[in-house]
Nucleic acid binder design. Structure first.
Lengths: 206, 206
DNA sequence: TAGATTGTTAATCGATTAACAATC
DNA sequence: TAGATTGTTAATCGATTAACAATC
């Protein structure tokens, strides 16, 4: 079966499978089954087989999936066989932490441009890079062809920053600001507001 | 209609509605409609009405929802009319940033206990608190009755930390570590691995 | 009153699960 | 071969949407 139009909810599970497979690989495991992978990530075996079958036949009856092979397929599917440059806006505590976070560059994303609007921060070195002025954002990002942005500014500034990113050609935004962003079709946003996660779980507490 | 057994997917949208309503309130708006709120958060008006109707009749035909009233109802439903203490484990860059993040304490959660296993960090002051030794985690959390934990340690240590949190009575975990956690029924986990969000969006890039 | 918008029902749509023939 | 596990189909389950009477 080849790729027709894959539901986004399936696409969303692939990075989770990938993460688990890498973990198994680090433990020198060679193969796994939908059963085992499912237990690891908390998803039914049937669903994992169904999800993967959207993209091809990656397993073998009787033995399961070769881990290295499946990782490679997932990297292809998710277009992760390249490092992507990322622009990060807002060098507060969170922006700082993310720009230094090894977990991004390990997994396909490298923060190469960082911006802030605070004159005290502009010019500061971060990693190999220097904090640039927000006013240069659109031109610099467009010139660099960067398609991925991370918003770490306060809620009050987030929509305006998003608008500029989109103007600059960014089509994938990771949003740490606690606000829903209005974006045109074709632009994707992933929200990582910690308070939303906590408030959601709060419902189940006493 | 009173609360029977609400699907988690609905519970998960309530904090997003709440966040948008607060934003409207900050702009001095008095009332809103399912239509308007839906446009703001990117969800259909019908769905918002259906979601809210699970918990009561909060609107008025012809005029919509009183914002202050609806906020108050959502706070009640989500059990957010109290400040909850939170334990944070792992004082690396991310843990540091989170422990100082105003956006948590503004919205019902206060980091009051912080732990690390690095002798250089133990004893360090963070906010009004002092970084404690991981080995004290279970006893301290249990004694304080804290039910919410945030994991900011590397993937290699996260499951062990989760086990300790659960042993100490925590039932809601916000997990920044890039790994799926194995937890017993009754314990909830929200995942905030930034790479998963980016990899998911990567599928739609060239 | 006329217009607007709710809460709810029924219809639609989509996602998950169960089951099993195929086959390694 | 016998046992295990895939990929896929059909059945089930759940979530979303459309539509509208009720009513502010």
């Amino acid at each position: 079966m080849i790729n027709r139009d894959i539901p986004d909810i399936i696409v969303g599970r692939l990075p989770v499978y990938l993460r688990a497979l890498r973990h198994m690989q680090a433990q020198e495991k060679q193969t796994t089954s939908s059963q085992e992978l499912g237990e690891w990530v908390g998803i039914s075996a049937a669903q994992i087989r169904k999800d993967l079958s959207q993209f091809g036949e990656f397993g073998k009856q009787g033995t399961g999936y070769n881990i290295a092979f499946l990782i490679n397929k997932l990297l292809e599917i998710l277009k992760l066989k390249q490092i992507r440059d990322v622009a990060l806006i807002g060098m507060g505590d969170m922006g700082h932490a993310l720009s230094r976070y090894q977990g991004l560059s390990d997994r396909g994303f490298q923060v190469t441009l960082v911006f802030d609007n605070d004159p005290d921060k502009i010019g500061e070195r971060v990693g190999h890079f220097v904090v640039a002025d927000n006013r240069e954002m659109v031109n610099t990002i467009r010139a660099a062809g960067v398609k991925v942005g991370i918003i770490c500014v306060p809620a009050s500034a987030a929509q305006e920053v998003a608008n500029k990113l989109i103007e600059a050609g960014v089509t994938a935004i990771l949003n740490y600001a606690p606000i829903s962003l209005n974006v045109p079709k074709g632009v994707r946003v992933q929200y990582l507001d910690p308070a939303v996660g906590l408030q959601r779980m709060s419902y189940y507490l006493d």
